[in-house]
Nucleic acid binder design. Structure first.
Lengths: 183, 183
DNA sequence: TGATACATGTAAGGGGTTACATGATTTC
DNA sequence: GAAATCATGTAACCCCTTACATGTATCA
């Protein structure tokens, strides 16, 4: 899966592993992320599979930058993935809900504190989607007007985050009230 | 993490790996799941760590059932985890959003079909939370009235699923409209 | 002076999925 | 006759995280 994230970004422009990490962190981080070490490993694999080519660029007083470029084969592989229908929902894992599920033995006050912390964390996320994330998309489109189609989809994923975390905040408010009264 | 899911369930009653799989599938599946193979491996690890004990129960014409019981040490380990504060949001991975993010090159009609399929899948989930999941919780509480406190939390996790997937359905409706008009 | 940015990588270990192996009983 | 249920397990493989290793330049 990380494979396609990397190919997806490289389809815009050639980049190094380091660049890819930063690009992911400022765009897909909320629904897809990866550590640098894993990015380097996956890039090497993509290279042996012929989906990307690479060139080492010398630098003064710094390690060489290894710039990866997507190949024709890489583009068809990416397009093939994009056109593969998803007819199921990938089951997700939510450690906080798991802990909550088993929390009957904990003290009421501890539980309320936990719920309030989560509430505030998710509210911050909503705020970030509305300001930072929106600004990043606006900047990208301003500097490249031919990305209208792309921008509509980026905005859709941004909006997904906003809407889902809003729902989580209101669920946490509701849950805090329930626990306050009946736990 | 699976470790604590297993300890959490075993704190209610002794069970086999097979039992645990079924219990998870009918309760936490929407926010935590595991394959049988991984459950068996993890139970063995918990056993060597002394957090569970096990007894083989003979059966006619079937493999022995290996029944696991949580130990005192297992209970303290579980309680310690329950009382560990979560002060961050675990970053999640959403393959559908990742694909959507890079979908600028696909045909409009294909994209609309994908979005509609996801919409229907999430709507089915909402329906399931409201009927099946609610019924399972009601049955469990009816047969064990001392689980009031537990039930309040089970209901909270059920409600989380309902609220979040409702939000996703409305986001998909909104996104389908946007794509229909401007993509 | 210490942290951060730049830049790439290896090593160790954890967790996970899928496939395979076995085999009787029950249900469609 | 085929598939699902009960029941446990191994093997191969993949992906991921954390820690470590290296080294300069810049910024607070």
């Amino acid at each position: 899966m990380l494979k396609f994230a990397l190919l997806g970004f490289l389809a815009y422009r050639p980049m190094t592993g380091y660049d890819l990490k930063q690009t992911m962190d400022s765009s897909t981080a909320n629904f897809w992320h990866a550590e640098l070490s894993q990015i380097y490993i996956t890039l090497k694999k993509l290279h042996t599979e012929g989906l990307v080519s690479s060139v080492a660029v010398e630098q003064d007083s710094r390690p060489d930058r290894r710039v990866y470029t997507i190949t024709e084969e890489g583009i068809s592989d990416l397009r093939r993935w994009l056109r593969t229908p998803d007819t199921e929902i990938h089951p997700s894992k939510e450690p906080f809900l798991l802990k909550l599920f088993f929390s009957a033995p904990v003290e009421k006050e501890f539980l309320l504190t936990q719920l309030r912390i989560q509430r505030d964390l998710h509210q911050s996320l909503v705020d970030a989607y509305r300001s930072q994330t929106a600004a990043i998309i606006a900047t990208a489109v301003a500097s490249a007007p031919h990305l209208q189609r792309d921008a509509l989809l980026w905005e859709a994923t941004r909006r997904a985050g906003e809407v889902i975390d809003e729902a989580i905040v209101s669920w946490l408010d509701e849950t805090i009230e329930r626990v306050r009264q009946d736990f």
